[in-house]
């Protein structure tokens, strides 16, 4: 594969201190390695890159259609001039979402995963080489619309934001606990539709808190704009303060 990131499969030279037990001609090798080791390693590398450049990286995850791109469109437009944004769009097919982001005047890179149902740290590593985000910028990664698979794959993000919408069941956090368990913020979107759907918002919040007691929750409507200012405040509070020179 590529030399820059050491991603080829013949790169596992660590762990040369294995214990070997011999049974007849067979040798048992103690491996004791995390299956996600390779992904986690590159995620840490991405994280190091973000830290060095003072970049705030957020990984946006949700079921298909919960409003990830809509939330980005609003945010990029409303906070233009206040924060520097860059976006990585992950989709199985099409550049539709990237086109929507591009239309807001924001720098964006598309990753098409084909059959792949999630982004991984390796894809992000390569996307960053092309994107070259500026120091002190905010990087949004819109993951593939899927509430299961992306949960396991650390991309090197600082914050993981899970979005659910009121047109989904209020038991979503219990049905897909891994994603809610690994996220730091939950956005409940499409609150403008609350009068028309049998969604119990308190129940939804309670369920999300059951899975992850540390999860913060913000209710918004990307259509009416309600609640967005709370999201913007949260976002700005996460932006690292650049180190003062001198």
């Amino acid at each position: 594969m590529c030399a820059t990131c050491g991603c080829s499969s013949d790169q596992h030279h660590e762990h040369d201190d294995h214990h070997h037990h011999h049974h007849d001609q067979k040798t048992v090798i103690d491996v004791e390695r995390d299956i996600l080791h390779q992904n986690n390693l590159l995620a840490e590398r991405n994280r190091g890159y973000f830290d060095a450049k003072n970049i705030l990286c957020l990984n946006l995850v949700s079921s298909p259609g919960s409003g990830k791109t809509s939330l980005l469109e609003k945010t990029l437009t409303d906070l233009k001039g206040e924060l520097d944004f860059v976006v990585i769009e992950g989709d199985q097919q099409t550049t539709n979402d990237a086109d929507r982001i591009h239309a807001t005047g924001t720098k964006v890179t598309q990753i098409n995963t084909g059959k792949g149902c999630h982004l991984d740290s390796h894809m992000i590593f390569h996307a960053l080489q092309g994107l070259k985000p500026k120091e002190n910028s905010v990087l949004f990664i819109e993951n593939v619309g899927n509430l299961v698979c992306p949960a396991m794959f650390d991309l090197g993000e600082k914050e993981r934001v899970v979005i659910m919408s009121v047109t989904e069941g209020d038991d979503k956090p219990l049905k897909y606990p891994d994603m809610f368990h690994t996220s730091t913020l939950c956005i409940i979107n499409k609150t403008d539709l609350l009068p028309y759907v049998p969604f119990d918002i308190n129940k939804a919040k309670e369920n999300a808190k059951k899975v992850n007691h540390k999860l913060e929750i913000i209710e918004v409507s990307c259509t009416s704009g309600e609640g967005l200012s709370q999201w913007y405040d949260w976002l700005k509070s996460k932006v690292p303060v650049p180190e003062m020179v001198g």
Partner: peptide, 10 residues
């Protein structure tokens, strides 16, 4: 946990 604990080879 998600680990490869050991492999046995000849």
């Amino acid at each position: 946990e998600l680990r490869v604990k050991s492999v046995t080879v000849e």
